[in-house]
């Protein structure tokens, strides 16, 4: 499964969502038909410049390794891959906001990964083959197979430390729900949520998924009338340091596999702010009602 049948294009490009969607037939999403790679590449627009960071080989390498390493537990690949993808495809938030790049990765560079990671679990009906949700190929940043990982690493890292991002990506409810919230655009808020999650994980708290969802709801609801930025002030990120880190992609060695890579050293969040919000969120969590799952079947995706 982990050797990709055709050579991927050498450089990343941008593929509009409209063009990308036209290739996403039922057969492709079920993994039965090949994506016409030549046509996809022809439909895409090359990215500017010769920058090394737009090479596909390093991305392919970590994806192959992830498929190998997590063959028996696909969802566990997220926490391993997110920081490594972020440190490999180094870019600004403005660049990462281009869905075309993510579309191209999913359709031209690694459709096999999208299928591997997101084909629904469980038994399939004989008549209808299991299909991957199209949003995993061309969806918003919190759904698309690669964008969700890159953005999780971006939103939950603490300066160069990807540790909190690993915690966040280790829980599917966190990565699927929290990433949609505007509240995580504030770094101490994101880090405090990761910290609460970590405490639960370490103490073996039951019904973790329900608790995470309840926490997300509570943080978001309170955030509509409370300004977390005022309660928990933070410093502006060091944009120059981030730009330098992106430039270093020209010469940086491949990301390590056994330890975490270093993210951009653009400033860690203020400790006092993270602690204040952690205490507040613990209180939210203690008061928040948990969803009744007696009837709703929990599905891992």
């Amino acid at each position: 499964m982990n050797s990709y049948p055709v050579d991927p294009p050498e450089r990343l490009a941008s593929l509009t969502t409209g063009r990308a969607t036209s290739f996403l037939t039922e057969g492709v999403r079920a993994g039965q038909d090949e994506i016409p790679q030549v046509a996809v590449v022809r439909a895409a627009t090359p990215l500017d410049g010769y920058a090394v960071r737009w090479s596909t080989a390093p991305v392919r390498e970590i994806l192959d390794e992830a498929m190998d390493r997590f063959a028996d537990a696909r969802t566990d690949a997220d926490a391993w891959l997110a920081p490594r993808l972020h440190a490999t495809v180094r870019m600004s938030r403005a660049e990462a906001a281009d869905p075309g790049l993510w579309n191209f990765l999913a359709l031209a560079v690694a459709p096999d990964y999208v299928l591997w990671r997101h084909v629904p679990a469980g038994q399939s009906e004989e008549a209808a083959p299991k299909k991957v949700n199209a949003a995993r190929f061309v969806g918003p940043h919190y759904s698309q197979a690669f964008a969700r990982l890159w953005w999780s690493a971006e939103m939950f890292r603490d300066g160069p430390d990807y540790g909190p991002a690993v915690v966040a990506c280790g829980n599917q409810d966190m990565i699927n729900t929290a990433l949609r919230l505007d509240a995580v655009d504030h770094k101490p808020t994101a880090l405090a949520m990761a910290r609460v999650l970590q405490q639960w994980t370490e103490s073996g708290t039951n019904r973790l998924g329900d608790r995470v969802n309840a926490l997300c709801t509570a943080v978001n609801t309170a955030g509509s009338t409370l300004m977390y930025e005022v309660i928990a002030p933070d410093d502006a990120p060091d944009h120059a340091a981030r730009a330098a880190w992106i430039d270093e992609a020209e010469t940086a060695a491949s990301v390590p596999w056994e330890r975490l890579p270093d993210g951009p050293d653009d400033g860690s969040a203020r400790r006092t702010s993270c602690s204040a919000l952690t205490r507040m969120f613990e209180q939210f969590a203690a008061e928040a009602p948990l969803r009744d799952r007696a009837r709703a079947g929990a599905t891992a995706d």
Partner: peptide
């Protein structure tokens, strides 16, 4: 009084 500059596409919110 606080200014909030934000853009959903880049998940950026600067206060």
């Amino acid at each position: 009084c606080f200014a909030v500059l934000s853009e959903g596409a880049t998940n950026t919110r600067v206060v």
